[in-house]
């Protein structure tokens, strides 16, 4: 649990991702609309020429939508990746910073498997929710699948 983390301060929540899984952070003005996109799916962007489907993290974690990302002039999208999956995490205008292994040695891991969290860490009285982005990916795939698809 002590690997370097990317921390995201979003609508009062503190979220975290393993930096090893972060392929890039892109500043985006416009994500391409997906036919019949709904829920937390917010479009498609590209990272180094590869298309990446994007989900809206604030919706996934039920943030109040008064500062909806559509209205922000430019949003941050964190692209996460493993061997077979790539996903863009739209964090709007949230603060993004690093937590290094050294600091994390003092952290206390906790259990939280609710929603799209796969655990928590406590550090200096801050509680970070580790984002289960693979669950977000699976949920996006489920939402976007069509019965009458040609596959």
């Amino acid at each position: 649990m002590n690997e370097d983390k990317l921390a995201i301060g979003l609508c009062g929540l503190k979220l975290a991702l393993d930096t090893a899984e972060v392929a890039g952070i892109v500043s985006v003005r416009h994500a391409a609309y997906m036919p019949h996109q709904s829920g937390f799916v917010s479009g498609v962007i590209s990272l180094r020429g590869e298309p990446v489907a994007v989900v809206d993290v604030s919706r996934a974690f039920d943030c109040p939508q008064e500062d909806a990302p559509d209205k922000a002039p430019s949003r941050k999208v964190i692209v996460v990746k493993d061997a077979s999956r790539t996903l863009g995490l739209d964090v709007g205008a949230a603060d993004v910073y690093f937590l290094w292994t050294e600091e994390l040695k003092k952290s206390v891991p906790g259990e939280s498997r609710a929603g799209f969290a796969k655990g928590t860490i406590e550090l200096d009285r801050d509680r970070y929710i580790i984002i289960d982005w693979r669950a977000l990916f699976d949920e996006a795939a489920r939402v976007l699948a069509t019965e009458e698809s040609h596959v």
Partner: peptide, 8 residues
């Protein structure tokens, strides 16, 4: 590609 491989 997934997650949009079955996009309508």
């Amino acid at each position: 590609a997934p997650p949009i491989s079955r996009l309508w």
